[in-house]
């Protein structure tokens, strides 16, 4: 039996003891990973960590607020190039990260304006158009993209006697933990409720005092900030960026990760990131199959488990919690 004695207790993060134990074990495993796993796995884990941030951002927009956007590749590019220029200009890593996120967020608000009038597929098409336009701008304006040679970004300095690879992994893990925590807090606050209200019934949200304009644009700003940071962290990992990296497929990848991982779920966002990193690796011999795997996976999810991988996990958990009563 689960007794709650105060409203404050009811609102606590990871309230159940079992949740805290599992969380502790997971953190220990993640911290210990570099000491048992080969470098290429650590690198993949680093990629999952940075993708998770972008997928979370996308989930805030699609999953929580119900606004479909295919402009994410544009925000990745904006974040990556803003970060690149800031780093080359001598701005320290954490500040450059915030700068990249902020620039993306400001542009995100502009892209959000069509969402005040357009819904569903119409909004998807408008944002898609924006994504293509930004791509063209970066491809054609050498001042932004660094021309043929692109931008070269200095590697992170190793810390505490760790290898460069391990340093990067731990920094990214820390950032993922930070973003995960903030996202949890945000979605369980008045902001998260307002966003879900807009998604479930925009008219009822308005009639209950939620300013549609403000919360739709806020969702775009927050999600673009996350995506900008994702772009920056990706640029840092690659060490060298050019516009072609951020093509429209990246938008689709993030969308796939949200749907497969689980709509409106933070844990699902991380699982979704894991999925879109793992699948291309597993199919590295047959790259052209990757989009087919995505397509089939989405169909399976939509038909059998609309809440995605995380929904599947919740059902399994419920099964064991109620065992043997079913």
């Amino acid at each position: 039996m689960d007794l709650i004695e105060s409203y404050r207790e009811d609102l606590r993060f990871a309230r159940r003891p079992i949740a805290r134990v599992l969380l502790g074990l997971l953190l220990a495993a993640l911290l210990g990973l570099p000491w048992v796993a080969p470098d290429h796995l650590v690198f993949l884990a680093t990629l999952v960590a940075l993708y998770s941030i972008g997928v979370m951002g996308q989930n805030i927009l699609i999953g929580y607020t119900g606004q479909i956007s295919f402009a994410q590749a544009a925000f990745l590019a904006i974040g990556a190039f803003a970060f690149g220029h800031l780093r080359i200009g001598g701005v320290p890593f954490p500040l450059a990260l915030v700068g990249a996120g902020t620039v993306a967020a400001v542009v995100g608000v502009l892209v959000g304006f069509p969402s005040l009038r357009l819904k569903g597929p119409y909004l998807a098409i408008a944002t898609l158009g924006f994504g293509v336009a930004v791509y063209q701008v970066f491809v054609n304006v050498e001042l932004l993209s660094g021309g043929r040679t692109g931008l070269a970004i200095a590697k992170l300095k190793p810390l505490f006697g760790l290898s460069a690879m391990h340093t990067q992994y731990y920094v990214y893990l820390l950032l993922l933990a930070l973003f995960t925590l903030v996202t949890y807090n945000l979605v369980s606050s008045y902001v998260g409720r307002a966003l879900v209200a807009v998604r479930d019934s925009d008219i009822a949200a308005e009639v209950n005092g939620v300013n549609l304009t403000r919360y739709k644009l806020l969702a775009f700003a927050i999600s673009s900030f996350y995506t900008g940071v994702h772009g920056a962290l990706y640029a840092q990992v690659l060490g060298h960026i050019e516009p072609q990296i951020f093509n429209i497929l990246e938008s689709l990848t993030l969308f796939v990760a949200v749907v497969i991982g689980g709509i409106a779920s933070i844990e699902g966002s991380i699982l979704g990131a894991l999925f879109v990193i793992a699948v291309p690796k597993l199919f590295s011999e047959y790259r052209e199959l990757v989009p087919i795997v995505y397509g089939v996976a989405i169909l399976i999810v939509l038909m059998f488990e609309p809440l995605g991988l995380y929904g599947g996990w919740l059902k399994t958990r419920l099964y064991f919690r109620n065992w043997p009563f079913r």
């Binding site: 307002a194 209200a197 209950n208």
Partner: peptide, 17 residues
């Protein structure tokens, strides 16, 4: 017109927004 995926309590909390 309810927020179907929120709990009863959270629906009321949106009213407090």
């Amino acid at each position: 017109r309810l927020f179907h995926n929120l709990s009863v309590l959270d629906n009321l909390m949106v009213g407090r927004h």
